[in-house]
Design a binder for these strands. Structure first.
Length: 157
DNA sequence: GCCAACGTTGGC
DNA sequence: GCCAACGTTGGC
């Protein structure tokens, strides 16, 4: 069986790689994903052992901040049923939950952010959603060759 | 804060 | 099922 590679976006002002580092066992559930395409990935395709780039968006230092490993796959995101939560979804039926999440564990925080600008400048990187028009998906697959190439660039920082 | 590019909603 | 209006994302 072949593992898969992903990129998860997060806004560091809300929850960034340092917050993940400060969690017990450096593990946290990746909740609050409210987009169907991203949900489908989380529910069906993100598997234990997959590797994930943690990407910081909507902030001063936009780019890839580190790597996490999936330690629990596809289960119901409980925040959708919590009326107090900003991720509450009153239209989601508890008998047939709409939203899913996974658990990730931090593996590495890079010394520096691999910036979106530099990623866009790499001629080797053409497939990842980050470099494509739109680029709004918060959970996106990364091809193995591009994951490994980007990782090598992070190591070189 | 601006605004382009999306995704979602809802009337028909 | 179409599509206009609306809401959100995210880089800058």
């Amino acid at each position: 069986m072949r593992m898969n590679y992903w990129l998860f976006k997060t806004e560091p002002d809300a929850f960034g790689i340092d917050d993940l580092a400060n969690m017990s066992d450096q593990t946290e559930h990746w909740d609050g994903i409210r987009n169907y395409q991203a949900r489908n990935f989380l529910r069906d395709d993100v598997k234990v052992g997959d590797l994930v780039f943690i990407y910081h968006s909507s902030c001063k230092d936009v780019g890839i901040a580190g790597i996490a490993e999936v330690v629990k796959e596809g289960y119901v995101d409980h925040t959708q049923f919590d009326p107090e939560c900003k991720y509450h979804d009153p239209k989601s039926d508890p008998q047939k939950p709409r939203w899913y999440m996974v658990d990730v564990k931090l593996m590495r925080k890079f010394d520096r952010i691999l910036s979106l600008k530099s990623i866009k400048s790499m001629s080797e990187i053409t497939q990842i959603g980050l470099v494509k028009k739109g680029n709004r998906l918060s959970i996106m697959p990364v091809e193995q060759v591009e994951f490994e190439y980007l990782l090598a660039q992070c190591d070189a920082l």
